[in-house]
Simulated assay, not measured.
Amino acid sequence: SLSAVIKWLRYLASRLPNSDRACRDLDELRLKMILRLLQTNSFSGKMNALNEVHKLLPSLIPIHRSTLNRSDDSEGLTPEKFIQWIQEHQILDIVLRDCLHQPQYVEKLERILRFMIKEQALSRNDLAKIWNASCGKHEAIEKNVHDLLAKLAWDFSPEQLEQLFDCFRESWTKASKKQREKLLELIRRLAEDDKEGLMANKVLELLWNISHDKLFPNEIIDQALAAHLKILDYSCLPVSKDFLLKKIH
């Protein structure tokens, strides 16, 4: 694999007089090869590129770096430099362009996005791109992207979570009947997966507003109410009680 070749070359480079420069050059070569694989039309090529990124990420995180065999470590490539590479080469645009109908591809993509979230490098524009990647696309793509967002949402900052809910609200006005059903499913899932009640109130508020919006057909309102009631059953008691008390008053 590419990572094995680079590792061996780094081992050889560490024996050279100007080893630091040689290792940095190898880091750049590795990123160039990953970029080239991502830009191919081959699904296997893209998967290989994402696999290489997965092998690269641990070396960017100090807590995972070994104090032994430092010549094998990617000392020159920091999280900041990797984020800069992602931004300069518009990696997010490339990986969201196609293959999103493949669940295994989206699973690989998830780790990169989690890394960006951890490094506080996922911008509003980036999150909008992820959301828009499913809009008007095949049902399989829509499902995979929704599943991805449902997993990532737990790591979102309050601002990112608010943006996600803004996307929910905006989509209602444009969505077809089937798309609204899918949105309801995603929204409900966020609350039902909430074991601590941190997100349930936000979801309940959104569903409450949908169910009381006269612009929506009765069928959608009924679905929103049904989802609302189901979440109240699943959610922890303090969340349900707090929400109901707020609405009563």
Rank of each mutant, 00 (worst) to 15 (best):
E170M: 07
R189S: 12
F156I: 06
A191K: 09
R180V: 00
K214V: 12
G136C: 05
R169L: 06
L152N: 07
E139T: 09
K214Q: 12
V203F: 03
E205I: 08
F168T: 01
D147W: 01
N209T: 11
E139S: 05
H138Y: 10
E159A: 10
Q163S: 07
D155R: 12
F216K: 04
E185L: 08
Q163F: 07
L206K: 02
S211M: 10
F216H: 15
Q163M: 08
L149M: 14
G136Q: 03
L215K: 14
A150N: 14
D166Y: 05
E162C: 12
L207A: 01
K202S: 05
Q179D: 10
F156Q: 02
R188K: 14
L184C: 12
E205A: 08
N144H: 12
L161R: 03
R169V: 15
S171Q: 13
W172F: 15
H146Y: 09
W172S: 03
R189D: 10
S157Q: 07
T173E: 15
L152A: 07
L183N: 01
S211R: 05
A133P: 01
R169D: 10
G136Y: 02
R169G: 00
L184T: 00
K202P: 01
E170W: 03
A191N: 07
R169T: 10
Q223H: 13
N201I: 04
L207H: 02
E185R: 07
D166T: 08
D155V: 03
I220W: 00
Q223A: 15
P158M: 11
N132I: 06
I221M: 12
H146S: 04
K195G: 01
D155Q: 15
D193P: 07
E219Q: 15
N218F: 10
K177P: 02
Q163T: 04
D213T: 04
K174M: 13
A153Y: 11
Q160L: 07
A150E: 14
I221A: 12
K137Q: 15
Q163Y: 12
P158A: 15
